[in-house]
Design a protein around this nucleic acid. Structure first.
Length: 194
DNA sequence: TGTCCGATTGGT
DNA sequence: CCAATCGGACAG
C-alpha cells in the first residue's frame, strides 16, 4: 500500500524511523526499479544547524522544503551526486528525511547498468549511489511522492530492529552534529559504511 | 558578478 | 588523503 500524505505529515524523526523497511519505487522511462529503505537521516528544520532550512532560510533551492509533506527534495551535491529527501511535517514546516541506502528489489539489471558495477550489495549503498541506480536526478525535485512516478510503499516488511546514531557528513553543524538522527536496520548488509 | 564550498564517492 | 564538478548562497 502506497504511503499517503498523512504518513509524511509528522516530524522527521518519526518518519525517518518508520520509513525503514518500506519500499522506494521509481517508474522511469527506462523501467521500474525499487528497493527496501534500510538507512535514513532526519533533518529537523529551522532549529537544526545541519539542515538547509536552518534559521528559517528560504532560498530558491530550499523552497521545496516548505511544500506539502510527501514532496521530493532533491539537490545536487559536489556538482556530481543527487541526494533524495522526502519533505515531512505540516506544509510550511521545512523538515525532511534523507534516504541513505536501499536493499535492491526490482530492476536490479537496470541498476547495474546505470551504476556500471555488478555487486548488488553496493548498488544502493549511500545517498548518491542509490539515486544513480534508481535514475533519480534533480529533474524530479519537487515531485509529489504520493503520485505514480516516485513513491514509497508499505509491503509489510519487518519487524525492524532500529539502530540510532549520529548523522554522517554534518561536522559543520556544531552541537547538532551530535544529535542521534541517523537510523538504520540492525545487521542489514546494504547500509552505508564509514 | 565573483568567490567559496558542499547531507559524496571512488581511486591513490 | 584527495580530486571531481557545478549550482546555490552570499558578499560586494
Amino acid at each position: 500500500m502506497k504511503l499517503g500524505r498523512s504518513f509524511y505529515e509528522r516530524d522527521a524523526i518519526t518518519v525517518a524511523k518508520e520509513l525503514l523497511g518500506k519500499l522506494l519505487v521509481h517508474n522511469s522511462e527506462e523501467g521500474r526499479t525499487s528497493g527496501i529503505i534500510v538507512e535514513t537521516e532526519a533533518y529537523m528544520g529551522i532549529t537544526d544547524k545541519a539542515s538547509h532550512s536552518y534559521g528559517g532560510r528560504r532560498t530558491k533551492r530550499t523552497s521545496t522544503l516548505y511544500g506539502k509533506p510527501g514532496t521530493a527534495y532533491i539537490y545536487l551535491i559536489y556538482g556530481i551526486h543527487s541526494l533524495l529527501n522526502v519533505v515531512t511535517g505540516p506544509e510550511g514546516v521545512p523538515m525532511a528525511v534523507l534516504i541513505r541506502a536501499l536493499e535492491p528489489r526490482e530492476g536490479i539489471e537496470l541498476m547495474k547498468a546505470r551504476r556500471g558495477i555488478d555487486d548488488v550489495k553496493r548498488l544502493c549503498k549511500g545517498p548518491g549511489s542509490l539515486t544513480k541506480a534508481m535514475g533519480i536526478g534533480i529533474k524530479l525535485n519537487g515531485i509529489d511522492m504520493t503520485g505514480d512516478i516516485l513513491f514509497i510503499e508499505d509491503i509489510g516488511y519487518g519487524p525492524v530492529d532500529i539502530v540510532q546514531t549520529t548523522r554522517i557528513g554534518v561536522e559543520y553543524a556544531e552541537e547538532d552534529a551530535l544529535k542521534p538522527w541517523r537510523f538504520y536496520i540492525r545487521g542489514n548488509e546494504y547500509v552505508s559504511r564509514r
